[in-house]
Amino acid sequence: MTPLNAPGNRWSDLDRPPLNAPALRRALLRPDALWTSFDVVPATGSTNSDLAARAADSAEGAVLVAEEQSAGRGRLDRVWTAPPRSGLFFSVLLRPGPGVPQERWGWLPLLAGVAAAAGLSRAAGVDMSLKWPNDLLVRAGGGERKAGGILAERAGADAVVIGIGINVTLREDELPVPGAGSLLLANAVSTDRDPLLRAVLRSLADWYEEWRAVGGDPVASRLQEAYAAGCATLGRTVRAELPGGRSVTGEAVALDGDGRLVLAPADGGPREAVGAGDIVHLRPAG
């Protein structure tokens, strides 16, 4: 018999039980649903990398979840680490199709942020906000902390893989960096990962299908309005650090029709829109 506390034993931390994959499949995989396959693996390097590698042979709506990631990535290949079964680490495969112009695909990570924040707010009972372009924030310890992140990557000519990582039960001594947070530290009413994952995936399907039905139009789908309403970055003075050492400082006043952040310099100079692909860091000014 394997000792309970042996490394790799899925029951080694009874406060962090494994996901119930059969029950999740029954709840999510329905004939009229977006989600077409659902797999949970004990550990992997990166769910985004794994799902992208098999995108050519996968239908839209494939979902891959890992109980642990050893090489989870954020934007610009920043590392995302967390103890096994302490969070939700998953990727989904989407094919917006010819009905959505590719210039609107840049809204997909913002859509995922709105959907995740909405689903978690309902299921976990926490106040979620969005830091442009791809962070999920919670209130914990008297301030805002990053509890989740989103990474969207192209997978071939017609597909996008969206990875979402959410810290659920990380304790203070387990946080990877200062400023990180978790649903537990935000006093969530529930940290049961099964209903949390269901809530996020259902919210994501609802937002995606509405957005796709109107050709990816961020106004007609209400996506631009919803993101702006939940975005903690808007109204703050920030410094956008760009490649080549250039930076732009100003008040974040709006999102434009392409999902870029519009900055108004304090000196009254012309407003400048910065895109997620151009940002190295976005920090509070000063």
Rank of each mutant, 00 (worst) to 15 (best):
M1F: 14
T2W: 15
N9V: 12
D13C: 07
L14D: 14
A21N: 12
A23K: 09
A23D: 12
R26N: 13
R26Q: 14
L28N: 01
P31C: 11
A33M: 09
L34A: 00
F38Q: 04
F38I: 08
D39N: 15
D39T: 15
V40M: 12
P42F: 14
T44M: 14
T47Y: 03
A52D: 04
A56I: 11
D57C: 13
A59L: 10
V65W: 09
Q69A: 11
S70T: 15
S70E: 13
A71S: 12
G72H: 06
G74T: 06
V79Y: 11
W80P: 02
T81Q: 14
S86P: 05
F89C: 04
R95F: 10
G97H: 03
P101H: 07
P101K: 06
E103S: 10
P109Q: 08
L110E: 02
A112N: 03
G113K: 00
A115F: 04
L120R: 01
L120Y: 02
S129V: 14
L130M: 10
W132Q: 01
W132T: 00
W132S: 01
P133Q: 12
P133T: 14
N134V: 02
D135C: 04
L136F: 13
L137F: 05
R139L: 15
E144T: 12
G148Y: 03
I150S: 03
L151M: 13
A152G: 13
I162Q: 06
I162C: 11
T169Q: 08
D173A: 15
D173K: 15
L175R: 05
G179P: 05
S182T: 05
L183T: 07
A188D: 04
V189H: 13
R193T: 01
L196T: 00
L197Y: 00
L197E: 00
R198Y: 03
A199P: 00
S203E: 03
S203I: 00
A205F: 00
W207Y: 03
Y208D: 01
W211S: 01
R212I: 02
R212N: 03
R212G: 00
D217Q: 02
V219F: 11
S221W: 01
S221T: 04
R222I: 02
L223E: 01
Y227I: 05
G230C: 11
G230M: 09
L234Y: 07
G235E: 07
G235A: 07
V238S: 01
R239D: 10
G245H: 07
L255R: 01
D256G: 00
D258H: 14
A264K: 12
D267M: 08
G268A: 04
G269Q: 11
P270V: 09
E272C: 06
E272S: 07
V274L: 09
G275L: 12
G277K: 15
D278H: 08
I279Y: 01
H281Q: 13
P284E: 13
P284C: 13
G286M: 08
